[in-house]
Each structure stands twice: as C-alpha cells, then as structure tokens.
Simulated scan of single mutants.
Amino acid sequence: MTWLTAEQALILLGTKSQTLYANVSRGRIRAKPDPSDTRRSLYFGEDVNKLAARHPGRRKSEAVAEEAIRWGDPVLSSALSTVTDGRLFYRGRDAARLSEASTLEDVACLLWDMKRPLRLNGKVSQMAEPRLATAFAALAHRAPNDLPSLGRSAVALQAEAEDVLMTVADALAPGAHDMTLDQRLAENWKRPEAADPIRRAMVLLADHELNASTFAARITASAGATLSAVVLSGLSTLTGPLHGGAWRGVSGLVDTATAMGAREAVQSYLAQGQSLPAFGHPLYPDGDVRAQALLPHIPLPPIFAELQAAGEEMVGERGNIDFALSALADVFDLPRDAPLTIFALARTVGWLAHAMEQVTSGRLIRPRARYVGPSLEV
C-alpha cells in the first residue's frame, strides 16, 4: 500500500497542483496527513496511478473492460455490501454496529434477505476439531450431486444455502446445532471465553464487496453451478496468501518481532523492500474499520501492541483485519490456522448471498482476453 507526496503524484499525473486538489475534493484520489509533517498531505498511489493511466478521448471497449477488472475498480452492481467513506455496510446497515450484538446467523438472514430466522438443523458432528480439509471434501462431494442454481425460486435457494452453510459449519465448527456458530467454534477449541470476539469477527468478515474469493464465487454462480460448487470455488480462492491465507504472513512477522524486537522487525521488512504484513488496506486509507471494531475487545498481547505501535509510527498504517484475527488467535491460544477457519466460516455467508444475487441476474460473467502472444499463423 503506497502513499505519494504531492510532488510524486504530480509527476505521475502530469498536471498542475490545482488539478490534483480538485481530484481529491471529488473523491477520485484519497489523501491523508503526512505523519512526518501534518502541514502536508500524502496521496493514495493506487488512485493516482489509476487516473494517470487514463487517456483523454474515446477509448476502445476492450481497453475499458481491461481497466475495469483491475483491483479496486467496480466490476458488478450489488445490493449486498459496500465500503464507503471508510465504513463497511451490509444492505445499508453499518457492519461495525451490527458486530456489537448480532451473530453470523443474523447477518446471513440480512444478506440473504430472509423473511424468517435461520434454521441450521442436523446431527451433532463427532469430529474432534475443525478441519478445513473436511470442508473441502464435504463440498466436493455435494457439488456434482446438488441441483443447479439456475431456474429455482429465491425460497428454494435460501433453503439450500442454509444446508450448504450447515455442511461448512459441521466441518469447521462441529458441535450442537442449538448453539450459535461462534459458540460452536469456541467450545470446539475449548476456549468458551473467546466466543464473543469470535462472534464479532465473523460478523465483520461475512462480506466485503467483490473481493477475489467473492468474484470467483460469482463467476461460478453465473454459470448456474450448484451452491456447494460456488462455496467450494470461494473457499479455494480464500486460501491464497494474498487473501485469507494472509495469517501466515502475520505469523512470520510476529515470530521475527519476538526474536529481534518489534521496531527491528519492521525496519528489517522495510530495508528488504517488503511491505509490512497486515498493515493498511487499499479500501480504508484511514485504517481498516473491521480491525478498529474488533481490536478493542481483544486484550492485545504485548508483542502485538509493540508491532501495532511500530507499524503505525514507521509505516504510517494501522493494523488491518488480518492483524486483528492473528491477535485474537494468539491471546486465546487458538490453533495457528484459526484466523483462516474463522474467515472461511464467516465468508461462506457472503459467498452464498452473492451466488443467489448473481443467479437472479441470469447473466454469465465472461470477460475477454487481450492476446499478447506470438504472431498468429496465416
């Protein structure tokens, strides 16, 4: 995540200062005070580069399409969630406020537009601990056998979404079905005192616009695939290190900081030209609101507190949701991959919501490729 000085931004844009300031006032370029000199501002590099890449005049449709699929540009219309002015909303409701008292099941009802409470019925799983591999296997077993999603009513899809969520929950949060999903996870990990922060985290992670895993899930849904196949697609994408697998980077940073000190660890990352894991987020120039909503409810371990202070001072960014999830796992001594387990269970709700919304549109998502390979044979 890169912030530029006014001089750097003007060189890239090739414009005058007035034009830069006008783009900031119109919301095209995000800005924040320079931590080293509050009289000056820094400008969000992604926004500046995006504007710099645009050329005046009419562009070919394929150029517009190629630009639209890059990170941060709108791709599809959705009524489910949005990040606006540093806040996350689910169907118009503030996610941070919802996390104060709502459960993941409540958010599922909201995102799925349910007219009744969620029903997660079934047998009590006897599995000893949550296993991501079991979720993959269960979804893979269902995917070719369930009904395709196209041509079915909203009520039928909602009922199947409940069943698919139950399949994932039984793999990741095995336990009695009269308990909420956060309670099931906490009990399975033998940490009942962690239930409330886990609940808050899952509410905050339920959906997040068209992130990589959600876009993958929507593409799958657009082909009319089963809802279980949609979740399998989303779950596969989530495991990548640039997405839900980011907890590994945080774990490495914490290990380094434990060995050499927080400030020294941050300095080491920066000296090697590496971005600091779990600090900053392109959609939240002033700090990830999800982390800000979760961290006050976690007694931050000393090494995390030191890293948080060092990162904010030396990088000028706040810890994001990956940082908060890793702190949650550390303070309650949860399994190392607990952040991914929490993330996957929560985001299953969002993937299913997007699948149902996509199916309703009846459109196949099919971008074109701009060929840049060897010359074609004649």
Rank of each mutant, 00 (worst) to 15 (best):
K32A: 06
A133H: 08
L340V: 01
T256M: 12
E100A: 14
G362I: 03
V378M: 08
A173Q: 12
K32P: 13
A154C: 04
L157E: 07
A338R: 09
G86Q: 07
R336G: 08
P197F: 00
P241R: 14
I342K: 10
L242I: 11
M1Q: 07
S41A: 08
A101M: 08
K123W: 12
A223D: 11
T134Q: 11
D34K: 13
T19W: 04
V289G: 04
D182R: 05
A212M: 04
A338D: 05
G244Q: 03
L181K: 07
E312Y: 00
Q267T: 13
L325Q: 04
D286V: 02
L253M: 06
P117G: 13
A138Y: 08
A176D: 14
A353C: 10
T5Q: 07
P367I: 10
R87I: 07
A346F: 00
A225H: 04
A206P: 00
E67P: 00
R199Q: 08
S149N: 14
E66M: 09
H55T: 15
K60Y: 07
G234I: 12
P301Q: 06
L185G: 09
V230C: 15
A138E: 09
P335E: 13
P374W: 14
G86V: 03
I11R: 15
Y21N: 02
A171E: 06
S25G: 03
S236P: 07
A310H: 03
I342D: 01
A225L: 05
A257F: 03
R54V: 14
T220L: 04
R131T: 11
F89Y: 10
L295Y: 00
V155Y: 05
G175R: 10
N320H: 06
L270N: 02
A344L: 06
V164L: 07
A229Y: 11
E129C: 11
L334K: 05
E67Y: 02
L98N: 09
A65P: 00
P335A: 15
V289H: 04
E66D: 06
G261D: 02
D106L: 02
S375A: 15
V24F: 09
R28W: 05
A135Q: 03
W3P: 01
H208V: 12
A22L: 03
A143Q: 07
T2K: 05
A206G: 01
P56C: 11
I321M: 14
Q292R: 12
I365Y: 00
P335G: 12
L147A: 13
H177M: 11
